[in-house]
């Protein structure tokens, strides 16, 4: 894909995503009903859940592209894996800041060991490791492979980590206040708002993903232009 094409896609996705975000803002602040038990603060839900979804999506893309990179050794797969991982880091941070804010008000404690929150925290640290290894690798090509290995191994072990943290509360009883089953049962308007949120966040993610991918593309072109051939794999 040419650079212009990537840029075009980033723009289109970005415009759609921003439109979605504007609609989301209007829905969240003016339209959607207030949840009965948790009140206003429940509106954080519409940024929290979509960012969590995007974090998981990004993790999946990183793992899949990483595995494909190890197999096919196509640099573009590494660009995609890296771009998605960076997105996972950013959206994971959104999830991890909005979650405690919600919890601090709704349940009176900023951090709950709620399984999905815990899982996202751990996943976020896997992403951190992904970039630390890339940045500190003595050999760039080895760094790419090792980062891919981290992505793949992370994806293989994360389901087990998920099962562990899911079952952990059943081993140690938790206060009922912190018992968050599937969030509140959603009314129609809340479901619509959530869906718009998911859509908008996904579009924004892919837009910036394209932008980030374009950056790697530029680096590659630059490396060729300056005759500093990227080492063949």
């Amino acid at each position: 894909m040419s650079l212009a094409r990537i840029r075009w896609m980033a723009t289109v996705l970005g415009v759609l995503g921003v439109a979605g975000v504007l609609v989301l803002h209007w829905l969240v602040f003016f339209w959607v009903g207030t949840e009965r038990t948790m009140g206003i603060v429940q509106r954080i839900f519409y940024v929290h859940v979509p960012s969590a979804w995007v974090t998981f999506l990004a993790f999946g893309i990183t793992a899949l592209c990483g595995a494909a990179y190890l197999w096919l050794r196509d640099e573009r797969l590494d660009w995609a894996a890296q771009s998605a991982a960076e997105g996972g880091l950013v959206f994971g941070a959104i999830m991890l800041t909005s979650g405690p804010l919600w919890a601090a008000y709704a349940w009176g404690t900023p951090w709950t060991w709620e399984p999905r929150l815990t899982l996202t925290l751990l996943m976020w640290f896997v992403f951190v490791g992904y970039f630390l290894v890339r940045a500190s690798a003595e050999d760039r090509q080895a760094g790419k492979r090792m980062a891919a290995v981290i992505g793949v191994l992370g994806a293989l072990l994360i389901p087990l980590v998920h099962v562990s943290v899911l079952w952990f509360p059943s081993l140690h009883p938790q206060p009922v206040v912190l018992n968050v089953e599937e969030g509140p049962t959603l009314d129609g308007d809340m479901l619509i708002t959530l869906m718009i949120g998911l859509l908008a966040f996904t579009l924004i993610f892919f837009s910036v993903f394209c932008l980030r991918y374009g950056l790697e593309h530029m680096r590659y072109q630059r490396a060729i232009a300056t005759r500093e051939q990227p080492r063949a794999t």
Binding site: F125, V126, G129, V133, S136, M146, I150, L157, V161, L171
Partner: peptide
């Protein structure tokens, strides 16, 4: 094997393994 090939060496190891070792610790 991964951390040995970075210039951060063993400093990196806990960041890489601890998130994935949660099941071992729990169970």
């Amino acid at each position: 094997a991964i951390s040995a090939q970075t210039n951060m060496g063993q400093t990196l190891l806990p960041i890489l393994i601890f998130p994935l070792l949660v099941p071992v610790v729990i169970f």
